[in-house]
């Protein structure tokens, strides 16, 4: 990943920061400055809770360059509790245990690295919700 592209999207990748539409209240991710529901300008930052559930998923056995070491791994469409559907890798879960409707939560993990000398790219993944306090 180019350093500049990485740097520009830090907020959305580290914190799940999108936008909220001031006109209709629609929550938007990734941020695009225009509400896809009502086409009103939407530039107000909104940080998502990171809670959601698996809407659909696919297990990857033939990985693209940079992700070979993770196979087999699962990529899911996650329905965030605020509405948007986003694509992300699942982590801390065995591929056989992934189910549609499974509650998941956002964690920040290493997405990939640009070789031995390049930068480490961090971003959101989702994992099964951890048990809360006793």
């Amino acid at each position: 990943m180019e350093v500049a592209r990485f740097w520009r999207t830090t907020g959305q990748r580290y914190q799940l920061t999108g936008e909220v539409c001031p006109n209709c209240g629609n929550k938007i991710f990734p941020p695009r400055d225009v509400c896809p529901a009502c086409e009103h300008e939407a530039k107000t930052p909104y940080t998502f809770s990171g809670k959601g559930e698996v809407y659909s998923y696919s297990t990857i056995h033939a990985a693209p360059e940079g992700f070979e070491k993770y196979v087999p791994y699962t990529v899911a469409l996650v329905r965030l509790e605020e509405g948007p559907l986003i694509t992300a890798q699942l982590t801390d879960v065995d591929t056989k245990d992934v189910k549609v409707g499974m509650p998941v939560e956002m964690v920040t993990r290493v997405l990939r690295e640009d070789g031995e000398r390049g930068m480490l790219v961090y971003g959101y993944k989702f994992r099964p919700v951890l048990a809360g306090p006793r």
């Binding site: 982590t91 920040t108 997405l111 961090y122 993944k125």
Partner: peptide
């Protein structure tokens, strides 16, 4: 640690 974990990710959580 898992393959996608390091001191930065663990510190964040």
């Amino acid at each position: 640690p898992g393959l996608d974990e390091d001191v930065a990710t663990m510190s964040i959580e």
